[in-house]
């Protein structure tokens, strides 16, 4: 009777709770590309409700970008990313991933320092990676778990030996700053006592970088991390937007529009990415002079279709 003052945080629900409201379509980049309900969380959940097996949803499961935009959109509080990852684990691998130990002889000791797990995309933009490390005072790291991040995305098995090899040195760190959101979430489960931050948030909190943001910038939030912690981040980024005046890749619901819409096959290099339509949509009608990205993986997509300068957040000229 007096539960009116209780703070309710309902547990995430599974596909059976889908009422078919279609709200996930509005924010789904795959829907935007295909206009085909089968390639949406709604389509997958409804198919599962009708007893369809994961194998019959193979193309749909592969198509999901795991951007997570559907999660805050879902009024039934279904963890739709978890649903898709669970389906991926039920399927034979799209491409066999060798997630074996790397045979590291000497275990690194980070001695209570911050560690940046940059991932493959940021490593490709080495200047940005170095800038991020310098700004955040991070120690260099030999093993950033990029194979584990890919395995998580693909629903592939990770051996206990490889997991331990990856985690053992990280336990000596003071905090982990992680570029890949799926990896960050999994690290939160593996190392519950560890302080884990998302790279975009860690950088954007810095006053010196904030001062460099202009009202003719398009600031591109990394969507996976944003949607995984939507309730906290929507306020954070709204304040950042108002403080700096920059535009953001947010729709009218304040859900992040991904700059790319890559299927698992595209991420694994089995198919050529076709980001142009999504990236064009992000830029459509905007009067901007520069694009600032949190995710280094977005840089190439923008440069393919736009002559505007594209910079990683860590590379904003410093005061």
């Amino acid at each position: 009777m007096f539960d009116i003052f209780a703070k309710a945080t309902p547990a995430p629900r599974d596909y059976a709770a889908c009422s078919g409201c279609s709200l996930c379509l509005l924010v789904c980049p795959v829907w935007r590309k295909t206009r085909d309900l089968r390639y949406t969380p709604h389509g997958r959940a409804k198919a599962l409700q009708h007893g369809v097996a994961a194998a019959d949803l193979k193309d749909s499961i592969d198509s999901c970008t795991l951007c997570g935009a559907c999660v805050p959109a879902c009024p039934e509080n279904i963890d739709l990313v978890a649903m898709t990852l669970d389906l991926r684990r039920q399927l034979p691998p799209v491409r066999p991933l060798a997630i074996g130990t790397r045979g590291v002889k000497k275990i690194a000791d980070y001695s209570r320092q911050s560690v940046l797990l940059a991932g493959a995309a940021l490593r490709e933009h080495d200047a940005a990676r170095r800038a991020a490390m310098q700004l955040l005072g991070c120690a260099p790291v030999l093993d950033d778990g990029d194979d584990i991040a890919l395995a998580l995305e693909a629903g592939a098995q990770i051996s206990a030996a490889r997991q331990e090899e990856f985690l053992l040195p990280l336990r000596t760190a003071a905090q982990l700053i992680v570029a890949d959101a799926l990896l960050a979430q999994q690290l939160g489960r593996w190392l519950p006592q560890m302080q884990i931050s998302n790279l975009g948030m860690a950088l954007s909190r810095r006053a010196d970088l904030r001062r460099q943001l202009r009202n003719d910038d398009l600031y591109v939030i990394e969507p996976r991390a944003y949607h995984a912690d939507y309730e906290a981040r929507v306020r954070y980024y709204d304040d950042l937007r108002h403080a700096t005046g920059c535009a953001m890749n947010l729709d009218l619901q304040r859900i992040a529009i991904p700059a790319t819409a890559r299927s698992l096959s595209q991420r694994l290099g089995l198919k050529t990415p076709d980001d142009a339509e999504q990236t064009h949509w992000l830029l459509q009608g905007r009067k901007i002079a520069r694009i600032v990205v949190e995710d280094a993986g977005d840089i190439a997509a923008f440069r393919q279709i736009s002559t505007l300068p594209v910079v990683h957040l860590a590379e904003l000229p410093n005061d």
Binding site: S19, R38, H42, K46, A47, H50, G51, V52, L57, S60
Partner: peptide, 14 residues
């Protein structure tokens, strides 16, 4: 297929 048709088995009324 059931995967295609099943999503349309009911409306918002349910």
């Amino acid at each position: 297929s059931l995967a295609a048709c099943g999503a349309f088995a009911t409306d918002a009324g349910g």
